[in-house]
Amino acid sequence: MHTKWSLRDVIFIALIAVFFGFIFWAWAFAYNVIAAILTPMGLSPYANDATIGPWLMAGPMAGYIIRRAGASIIGETLAGTIEMVFGSQWGVMNIVAGAIQGLGTEIGFAIFGYRRWDKTSLTASVITVTIVTFGWDLLRNGYAQYSFGLLVGLFITRLISSAIFAGVIVYFTQKLIAKSGILTTHQSEVIS
């Protein structure tokens, strides 16, 4: 496994982070609208878990494409940082949240020693990122206050959201990339 990051890899991962940072930033508005709609129905805790998926995407996207140890965590942390630069309601915590989300994804790929890059490792990363971010929300968003039944509901909601965005969509994006052959022609530089 190659661990040295070349200038091009760094710029590549940072640009992916800029794209996703912008998407994250735009998604925050959707999140607030969804939360506002769910609030009068008394379902606002679900807004947090149902909408988490898009925020988790930069990590698996970077990891699954660059296929290198640390890519998920760096990609997701940078994307969080960029979101903060655009101006965000979570401020500096974006960086911390990004690092934690990236770590969650990274664990999933690390379980397989960064050797498997298929549905299995991607599924594992979806599960680990859900567990890690849920654990973080127990602390940060006061989830410990909620009843056990509500927590189970929230966990399942979060798992579905991350499976769709950090799993299925990442998988299909990667398929498009594989089909186009851009990474095989550039393989010597990007994946080496």
Binding site: R8, I11, I16, I177
Partner: peptide, 23 residues
């Protein structure tokens, strides 16, 4: 839409191109 794999694919394609040129 914002969740379309096509959009992400093109974003990654552009990132790859720009990163090559910039480096």
């Amino acid at each position: 839409s914002f969740y379309s794999p096509q959009l992400f694919f093109k974003a990654i394609l552009v990132s790859l191109q720009w990163s090559t040129r910039l480096s």
